[in-house]
């Protein structure tokens, strides 16, 4: 995007209380189109689709609880949430960044093809399901706490990191990586094989894995004020797809 001197560098503040989502998003879009670079939203109470149609690298900081589909189909913005996100955060996201200082709900990062999502605490069911990648587009989802069942289901690309910083012992999520046929999941701690989809393999981290993980955990720690080295001291395992074509052999022609 072409940056000219007339672009307001100061942060634009909006009190979102009582504003319907459609109106709020229309205002955000207008501001972004007029060149706003930084927008702060205060008193956000469940407004949906924030960041969906901005399509440019604007920084949106949210205080409160954004509604479902935060950053759905998003291309470009960087959204920081001081609060919890709801379901569908980063749905089919193409590019941009979402940083959540709190928890997030179900299906976070569904079908994301690019961009980064960092969640300080835990997420709900079906996180990172059907994330995919293409050339330089590789979505990244880093979860500080725990995830529920079906983490990384149908995963076709990208990188998913589950740190489990708020728990001791094994992860509890089941059906992890069911139908996985691309991408990689790094898990801090351990998981029983019955908790994994049958399309998933388990491996030790290689050199390239450790480099990538160190970079992602470094970013995570920088966002939320953790010590990356402390997090990385712990044992990690790598979950990967056993086949790029898990269902190639079930058909008769």
């Amino acid at each position: 995007m072409k940056v000219t001197e007339t672009i307001p560098e100061e942060t634009i503040k909006i009190d979102a209380s009582g504003i319907y989502y459609r109106e709020l998003n229309a205002r955000l879009r207008e501001l972004a189109q007029n060149g706003a670079r930084k927008i702060e939203l205060h008193n956000v109470y469940g407004q949906r689709y924030i960041g969906t149609n901005l399509n440019r690298p604007v920084e949106v900081t949210i205080f409160g609880t954004p509604g479902n589909d935060l950053g759905a189909f998003m291309e470009g913005p960087r959204i920081t949430v001081y609060g919890n996100a709801q379901d569908g955060c980063g749905n089919t996201m193409n590019d941009g960044e979402i940083i959540i200082h709190g928890h997030a709900g179900d299906v976070i990062g569904l079908s994301a093809r690019g961009g980064k999502i960092f969640v300080r605490d835990s997420v709900g069911y079906r996180a990172g399901i059907h994330m995919k990648e293409y050339q330089d587009k590789k979505p990244i989802l880093v979860i500080g706490g725990t995830a529920q069942d079906f983490l990384g289901e149908y995963m076709a690309g990208g990188t998913l990191v589950l740190l489990g910083l708020n728990r001791e012992g094994h992860h509890k999520a089941k059906f992890v990586g069911t139908g996985m046929h691309g991408g990689v999941i790094y898990l801090r701690g351990n998981i029983e094989s019955y908790q994994l989809g049958k399309e998933v393999g388990v491996a030790e981290l290689g050199e390239a894995d450790r480099e990538l993980l160190a970079r992602l955990v470094g970013e995570f720690a920088a966002h939320f004020g953790y010590n990356a080295d402390e997090i990385l001291k712990h044992k990690f395992i790598k979950l990967f797809p056993l086949s790029l074509r898990p269902y190639g052999r079930i058909y008769a022609h």
Partner: peptide
């Protein structure tokens, strides 16, 4: 489709 060449494209 924006997926790697040669991989199955699975529609859930």
């Amino acid at each position: 489709r924006m997926i790697p060449q040669g991989t199955d494209a699975l529609s859930p």
